[in-house]
Design a protein around this nucleic acid. Structure first.
Length: 580
DNA sequence: GCCGTTTTCGGCCCGACTGTTTTCAGTCG
């Protein structure tokens, strides 16, 4: 984990514990704001002059001192003290949707409940009856919330897994005798959540690599360790497996450990039909047995696929959901890649809830080589952001002034509108005319009945000013289910009105999901892959949006922000006239 | 606890929904 993320996590924990113990609301807010600022701060905190810490926005004397304590000693005294008062399980209770700090504390003090499991048991046993604030309806909601939390239990966000994998590979690659090292598993397939991190390696001295893995500073526990495989649990509670394989079977092993299991099963069946046998050691004649005799193919994935009569299949497609048939017909899609992207069409600044200034965001975007970039801060109906016409127009003037000044990048001025309960959006049409593009998203009233939600989304899509439907299902992975709507009808309407559907790349959204991307593209819909960045570092989340798009079988031509600017603007203009 | 300035302390993201509370607290975005 980056130092900044470690510090941010501790500050956020401190805020949570203050909230649970009934601290001052503004003080709590200060720690939350500081946590977000630190997480979004571009410089590595470990490299920042200690005296300069307080110059980070929302970090003052007290919080700077705590950060210095952490950087110096690895601890924050005041946090340790609070931890002794509130079990970590009580904090985790607040992760249950609908359960906040106040009622979590009531559960703990009145009923001794300090884990989600205990809450489930207590609810089932009727032990919450008579507890103030816990009526029959809220019990029902809690049970639903517990279900959601449990479904995501044990799985982590893809960026968390990717960061861990990167660190493991860096460290293992530095071990003498490490010849190859790569991640496999669902991470390589770019699933939206990851169970455990699989690392594959080739080493001149496998035992030495295993030892190095077991002795990593981030290895909190060794679950199992042998000659070919070692499993650890990290200090963050994530399981990571290291498998060392012979160099000659690298491709077969990478294929095997990348999965999916369903994809592997299909490949093995194909092998059997050809009188062959496929294992993680290679593709063999069925008679010769595993690992004995020279494999027919094993060194690279391409070799193995080719020996089975297939082209190489990109990992995001390996789910046995039609990719093998497509490969046999020679009809695998040419998948969109990060290099195809020419711009980002949904981003924020500190004018609303971002933590970076306009120029900082532009500088970082230009460094990514974008040809164009849209600034789309929140609109006034998201009341907490306090947007006004004046602020928006002033930002527009600034965006116009800066156009072309960051690596020649063309700037678009947009906004992220709120889709109200009835499908209305912010601002009258005359004001919306002034924007280069409008993203529109649902930010409230998530639990409307299906009919109502569908009408609401259709109305937004049919609004001629709406160019992109932002994070369409509004799911938050592990925290909020997707909205209930007739999405098929929404996709049809998007195709008809020339409204692009967003793949929000932010790792806790990844919305649309890959499954829905595949459903939507059948209607000929266009997509926009956007970072929804609220900080400089978030711009790089694009890779996860690309992963989701690839899992959804998307080609560059289906993604509007791979297009040259003139084609993009033509699409935006056409949408304004075709809709409604 | 931070910020900005009024340079020493007042204002801070504001409004709505939900369920249970008989007048509003907790939670969320």
């Amino acid at each position: 984990m980056r130092t900044n993320d470690e510090v941010a996590a501790l500050l956020a924990e401190y805020a949570d514990l203050l909230a649970i113990t009934g601290g001052d609301a503004f003080r709590i807010r200060s720690y939350e704001k500081a946590a977000r600022s630190v997480a979004g701060y571009p410089q590595d905190l470990a490299q920042v002059d200690p005296a300069e810490l307080a110059r980070i926005p929302n970090v003052g004397r007290a919080i700077a001192a705590k950060i210095r304590d952490y950087l110096g000693t690895g601890h924050i005294r005041q946090l340790e003290a609070l931890r002794t008062k509130v079990p970590d399980g009580v904090r985790r209770l607040t992760g249950v949707p609908g359960l906040g700090p106040k009622r979590a504390m009531v559960l703990y003090t009145e009923r001794g409940i300090d884990s989600v499991d205990e809450l489930a048991a207590a609810t089932a046993a009727g032990r919450l009856e008579g507890l103030p604030g816990f009526g029959p309806k809220s019990e029902e909601n809690l049970l639903r919330g517990i279900e959601l939390v449990r479904k995501s239990a044990g799985r982590i966000r893809i960026d968390t897994a990717m960061d861990l994998a990167a660190e493991l590979i860096t460290r293992l690659s530095a071990v003498p005798g490490c010849i190859r090292c790569a991640y496999a598993g669902s991470l390589r397939r770019m699933r939206d959540t990851i169970g455990d991190v699989d690392i594959l390696a080739v080493a001149a001295d496998p035992a030495a690599l295993m030892t190095a893995f077991r002795e990593l500073p981030l290895a909190a526990e060794v679950i199992a360790s042998g000659e070919a495989k070692t499993s650890i649990r990290t200090t963050d509670g994530i399981q990571a497996d290291l498998r060392v394989v012979p160099e000659g079977s690298w491709g077969a092993a990478l294929l095997y450990f990348t999965g999916s299991q369903a994809h592997n099963v299909r490949l093995r069946e194909m092998a059997i039909h050809r009188g062959l046998k496929l294992s993680e050691y290679g593709l063999f004649d069925a008679g010769t047995g595993t690992g004995t005799g020279a494999p027919l193919a094993a060194a690279t994935e391409e070799d193995v696929y080719q020996a089975l009569g297939l082209p190489w299949i990109p990992p995001p497609l390996r789910e046995d959901s039609g990719e093998i048939e497509a490969a046999q017909r020679g009809e695998l899609p040419v998948l969109v890649t990060e290099a195809d992207l020419r711009g980002d069409l949904h981003t924020h600044t500190n004018l609303t809830d971002g933590v970076a200034s306009l120029t900082d965001m532009l500088e970082a975007a230009a460094a990514r080589g974008y040809a164009y970039y849209a600034v789309t801060d929140h609109a006034p109906n998201l009341f907490m952001q306090r947007m006004t016409d004046e602020k928006m127009l002033s930002q527009r003037a600034e965006v116009r002034r800066l156009d072309g000044q960051f690596g020649g990048m063309r700037l678009l001025h947009g906004t992220e509108l709120n889709i109200g309960p009835d499908g209305e959006v912010d601002w009258p049409a005359e004001f919306l005319d002034g924007f280069d593009l409008c993203v529109a998203s649902v930010h409230s009233h998530f639990t409307q009945p299906r009919e109502e939600m569908t009408r609401r989304m259709l109305r937004a899509v049919e609004n001629p000013h709406v160019a992109i439907l932002g994070h369409p299902t509004t799911r938050k992975i592990g925290r909020r289910p997707p909205v209930d709507a007739d999405l098929d009808a929404v996709y049809k309407a998007c195709a008809r009105t020339g409204t692009a559907i967003e793949i929000d790349a932010y790792p806790d959204r990844l919305d649309l999901s890959a499954e829905h991307v595949r459903l939507a593209r059948r209607h000929g819909v266009r997509f926009s892959i956007d970072s929804d960045a609220h900080a400089v570092g978030h711009l790089a989340a694009m890779r996860y949006g690309i992963g989701t798009a690839q899992r959804g079988w998307l080609s560059p031509d289906e993604v509007i922000n791979t297009w040259p600017l003139d084609r993009l603007t033509a699409f935006l203009d056409a949408g304004r006239t075709r809709a409604s």
